[in-house]
Simulated assay, not measured.
Amino acid sequence: MPTRVRFSLTEPATDSAPLLFGVPFNTPEQSVIAIDVVAGNCLDRVTASNSGQTALLIEPEGGCAVVDVDFSDAAGMAPAWLFGSTGGAHEQPSVALAELIDGLAGTTCGQARVNRIIEHIDARFVYGRRERGLGDGEAAMPALVCDTHAGTCVDTHSYAVAAMRAGNMDAAYISGVFFKAGQSLSRPGHCWIAVQVDGAAQYWDVSHHLKYGLGPSQPGYNPLPGTRFALTAGRDLRFELPGRSLAVSILKGFVAADGEQGLALPTTASLI
């Protein structure tokens, strides 16, 4: 049976500047049946210039914007662009990270190689917030050679994607929404990674293992009981809008689309 998730601005927009809302995609765990702009005026549907990720360009109505998405748990086919790199600094391994992963992973391949990289990530992170996001302001993702470092799901999984790519593994950063078991309200912004292993997508949520003490990370779509929906993929997306280029570090929920840098706006997701 389809599940409807309603996304709305948590607080009214203070001006009429347009918003971006990422269009969810199909995965082996979900199919997107419909997407409907309930409040606001949909101006266009745009595709990132460095990815196949699409977004709705929405003009808020009276400061409000609401989008309903109907999901089915029927298996869908993931888009061909999912594992492509955006070329952004948060997804690209630095030379130092490439050398580190090469030394750690050695001649392993397939699942063994993925496991070795995940073990490295487990050892380098504790769940916590940083003053500045990992990789922010860098030309590429730095190497975490020693010690442990605080990181949210964004830091941990951005590093994980760059580390997997340093190990020549196809990986994707996925932004989504997670509802804990028994809850019907959440906020988009949780993320995880997909890794291509032996021709199939394998999901890892390292941050949930760290935050909730679930032990060494194991693959799985829901290591913590609850319900999740994949919404968008990729970091450092770029959208060509009329007269300007818009950079979006993370496309989660509603994003203010004025100026040259998109700003994520507080968004509430409701199971209805």
Rank of each mutant, 00 (worst) to 15 (best):
A201W: 05
A247K: 12
L237A: 04
M169K: 09
F178R: 07
S184T: 15
D205W: 04
A247T: 10
Y212N: 14
E240M: 12
A160W: 03
A200L: 10
D170C: 08
G167F: 01
G243R: 04
Y221C: 05
L210M: 11
S207N: 09
L214C: 07
H157A: 02
K180T: 10
D170I: 02
E240F: 08
V197S: 00
T156P: 01
L231M: 15
V206F: 01
H208N: 06
S158R: 10
D198W: 02
V206T: 06
M164I: 00
P242Q: 10
G189I: 04
A194K: 00
S245L: 11
A200G: 07
I193A: 01
E240W: 09
S184A: 14
S184C: 13
H208W: 12
D170M: 09
P216F: 01
W204S: 02
L246V: 12
P225D: 03
Q202N: 01
L185G: 05
P242V: 12
K180C: 03
L210C: 08
A163Y: 07
Q183R: 12
L241A: 03
K211S: 13
G243K: 04
Q183G: 01
Q218M: 09
A200P: 01
K180G: 09
K211G: 02
A194E: 03
V248A: 11
Y203I: 15
F239T: 09
S158T: 09
A201T: 14
G213Y: 05
G176K: 04
G182K: 06
K180H: 11
K211Q: 15
D205M: 05
T156V: 15
R244D: 08
W204H: 10
S207Y: 06
M164P: 00
G215N: 03
T156Q: 10
Q183T: 15
V206S: 01
T227L: 13
T156C: 11
Q218H: 00
G176V: 03
